[in-house]
Write a protein that binds this DNA or RNA. Structure first.
Length: 407
DNA sequence: TCTGGGGTCCTAGGACCC
DNA sequence: TCTGGGGTCCTAGGACCC
């Protein structure tokens, strides 16, 4: 007997111009003006003796930063995320430039996520300003396709933060992500599978999460510009052009099919630190500067690991040269570590395997193959197996804090 | 006046083991 | 001696996302 499964109802919630909106809570006098977040560090607003504030503008900026977020007024001038700040300054010299304040954004991130979880606990984190929410099990949600819950979520986020968000609610993550974009800012968009031809197929392929610059360029070269174009293409052709995995995914995606679950918990795979220099540095001429930066990154990375409670067994480096080409090298150690000196030594060995004749613009250090500290330490004596029971071999060749240098 | 920093996932080849 | 296949780990690069 045919018995259709109850369709899922998944929400994607995306905060509107998140960093910029948080800054506007702090500086309400900037409301209505083009404002961008990003650039370097030294453009903090100054409070004048009369209590008014003086803000830096893009015109005054010099450096190699990029725009992280822009208000809708700045977007109207052509200034978007990931654009070089110098290029943005050309387009909107009078836009206000504010430095990034991650601590503040994280604070608001926690607030809005807590407000959502109080209503709908099945939440998947997708970074600081967006989440997926599985609404399927909420009482009464299927009666109106999730509209009432969606409105409730928007209201709760606004009350908790003073900020607006946009929500898409559909049977899966793929469609919800597309829909949260359709009515930004402050939108609520519901969509059923039967709406796909009218609402989804006209969208540019590039809008899809998973189709980036390279794939969309290749699709365009094949005459496939919209999601509908992909839906109309021969599946065998897509597989032949893009391979079984990605081609097969394109076929499913274009029909709006996506059965990925909402994942409410995950462990980090890697932790890293990197920095782009103010000017390109040469391995020989700027050896001392480079060495200090390198060590500093390792110390910061070790601090991150310790603070978060992880140890790493694979240490890697990333270099970007003046021609913007990048290389990586990594090294797997005999034992996990969270020690700055051990990380520095492993990273130094990686660095020896790279040709350093070009000047460098970026240096990074990465810790992979992570293990939670709690899973590594020796069992507590009280938890030791009873006498006569064979003791399991230690999982890792500790000592954890071995510095190699001191042997 | 090009292009940040922090991530995930996929592919692919070689080593090594059974 | 030759042939072969599967599985896992390690490394490097690249696409993509927020």
């Amino acid at each position: 007997m045919y018995s259709p499964e109850a369709p899922r109802l998944i929400a994607h919630l995306d905060m509107d111009a998140f960093y910029a909106s948080v800054e506007l809570l702090r500086y309400p006098e900037l409301r209505g003006r083009p404002v961008v977040i990003g650039g370097g560090r030294r453009h903090q607003p100054q409070t004048l003796p009369d209590g008014t504030r003086r803000f830096a503008t893009l015109r005054e900026y010099t450096g190699r930063g990029v725009i992280t977020t822009s208000t809708y007024e700045a977007r109207a001038l052509g200034v978007f995320s990931a654009m070089g700040t110098m290029k943005a300054a050309r387009l909107a010299p009078d836009a206000v430039l504010l430095p990034v304040d991650f601590d503040e954004y994280r604070k608001y991130s926690r607030l809005f996520k807590a407000a959502v979880r109080a209503i709908a606990p099945q939440v998947e984190d997708r970074g600081i300003d967006e989440i997926y929410i599985d609404l399927s099990e909420l009482p009464g949600v299927h009666a109106d396709g999730g509209r009432r819950i969606g409105e409730q979520l928007k209201q709760a986020v606004r009350e908790a933060t003073g900020l607006s968000c946009s929500i898409g609610i559909t049977p899966n993550k793929l469609l919800s992500k597309l829909c949260s974009e359709l009515d930004k800012p402050d939108g609520l968009t519901l969509l059923r599978m039967e709406d796909i031809p009218v609402r989804i197929w006209p969208l540019a392929a590039r809008k899809v999460n998973g189709i980036g610059p390279k794939a969309s360029e290749k699709l365009a070269a094949l005459g496939l510009h919209t999601i509908g174009d992909i839906a109309a293409a021969e599946p065998a052709f897509l597989v032949q052009q893009f391979g079984a995995h990605y081609g097969g995914w394109l076929v499913q995606m274009a029909q709006g099919r996506d059965d990925r679950p909402v994942v409410t918990h995950s462990e980090p795979v890697s932790i890293s630190r990197e920095t782009t220099f103010e000017r390109d540095l040469h391995a020989v001429r700027d050896r001392a500067t480079l060495s200090d930066i390198f060590t500093g990154l390792c110390v910061e990375l070790a601090g991150d690991l310790q603070r978060k409670g992880y140890a790493s067994r694979t240490i890697g480096i990333k270099l970007r040269f003046d021609d913007f080409k990048s290389v990586t090298r990594d090294l797997t150690l005999p034992a996990h570590t969270m020690d700055a000196r051990a990380i520095r030594r492993a990273a130094g060995l990686c660095l020896k395997r790279v040709d350093l004749s070009r000047r460098l613009r970026l240096l990074g250090v990465r810790a992979g193959a992570l293990a939670r500290l709690a899973d590594l330490v020796a069992p507590h004596p009280a938890a030791e197996p009873a006498a006569g029971v064979a003791e399991p071999a230690p999982r890792y060749g500790l000592p954890l804090f071995d510095t190699l240098e001191s042997r």
